[in-house]
Design a protein around this nucleic acid. Structure first.
Lengths: 220, 220
DNA sequence: GCAAAAGTGTTCGCAATACACCCATGC
DNA sequence: GCATGGGTGTATTGCGAACACTTTTGC
């Protein structure tokens, strides 16, 4: 029994003006389900492993190279009617909104939709998105991946909002800031927000080297 | 590009006399690597989804029907030399040692090895075992799956040992027992251990219905 | 000066940790 | 009676949760 192997990507970004997590969808250009909005993805090629397929597809569709990419799991498509069945491996990716090259959105071949108001998706793509969000919730508790969604320079408010969106509930601002200030790898830049009609926020940066150090010292 | 799809199973059991987690290995009967010890598994058949393949293989090889089975992830085999490549989906399973029908062990076609002293495994099977143990560590923190490894009636000492083996470090007995006694779904039977040359231990049972109740009441 | 969001400390309760001795059985 | 593992309670500490006001900017 032989399979075609597809890779599907749940690509998430954070829009701080909307204060929403966004999911990237593309328009199908082949049967079945031509014209409907689905997860970006494609078939695994000769020399690729899955992760490479996912990376290639994402670079084609978003122009983004610096991203967080992690495999979710494999799904067997229920549609076992044909001779060559299709199986798919789902990945989820976190990208910075600003890095996204919008050529495909302009051509109406892709769009961002808020995960809070997802349309029904064909195939098992709805399930994959749900699984990705569950995984993200778990992973963000133990791993500093929020920074893949945020601009390089961000305010603590933005950081908090990302956590609130992913957890699905609000956090206490004072407790959150207390916690963050205890982390050596989230470093305040001298810089402030500008052009806001209220008190400007201090900007911060995630320092990967300091994070690695802190992980090592915990392990010892 | 077409693939053959294999399923590999990391099957774990607990032996309380050895106080070890055991991994099930089978002897390969085909090239490549004939005669070496590998994870049990097989190819996905026409009408099956992966989980079904895993279940079928496990029943063939262990005779066990009541088990915990969860997908780990998909692996692309690096050996991309041939025309039809092989991809594999790994599962991990927890079974009760006593349920295992030992016909294959007797025939020297399979064996149990302590996970603490694993031999090097061919292909990427070593990686799969490592990934399974990592996943198990995470899952056991939030989900009562230790009971799939234990006999129906078990002592608190046995339960503690399972947690210690999976976590990889020892736990404080008094604190552990205090915690367990606070759980409504771990119920003491009147019964005691027998034929032990020391004070016999109280036996306990995991009550799934009570567990479900407690999960629901937490959610409300 | 007013609207709007940034920023800041203290208290409380609970859960995790550390720790040492008596008990019941088989031989 | 002794060897072996079963079984028990208390005190301390650290961490997460709750909570309200002042500050800085643009207009």
């Amino acid at each position: 029994m032989l399979f075609k192997l597809a890779v599907d990507c749940v690509v998430l970004a954070y829009d701080h003006t909307l204060n929403q997590l966004l999911l990237l969808l593309t328009k199908r250009i082949k049967e079945p389900q031509v014209g409907s909005w689905v997860l970006p993805g494609g078939f695994v090629k000769q020399t690729e492993d899955f992760a490479l397929t996912a990376q290639r597809k994402l670079e084609e569709e978003t122009g983004v190279r610096n991203l967080y990419l992690e495999q979710l799991k494999a799904y067997s498509l229920s549609d076992a009617s044909t001779h060559n069945r299709i199986a798919s491996v789902a990945y989820y990716a976190l990208i910075k909104r600003a890095d996204y090259a919008p050529m495909l959105v302009d051509a109406q071949l892709s769009q961002w939709v808020p995960v809070a108001h997802l349309p029904a998706l064909p195939f098992d793509h709805g399930q994959k998105v749900a699984d990705a969000l569950t995984r993200l919730k778990q992973t963000i508790r133990t791993s500093p991946i929020a920074f893949y969604l945020l601009p390089v320079k961000f305010s603590l408010k933005q950081l908090q909002q990302v956590y609130e969106l992913i957890y699905g509930h609000s956090l206490d601002t004072r407790n959150f800031r207390k916690l963050v200030k205890g982390l050596p790898y989230i470093v305040p830049l001298g810089e402030m927000e500008s052009n806001v009609s209220h008190r400007p926020a201090q900007l911060y940066e995630f320092d990967l080297a300091l994070y690695s150090d802190s992980v090592i010292s915990e392990t010892i």
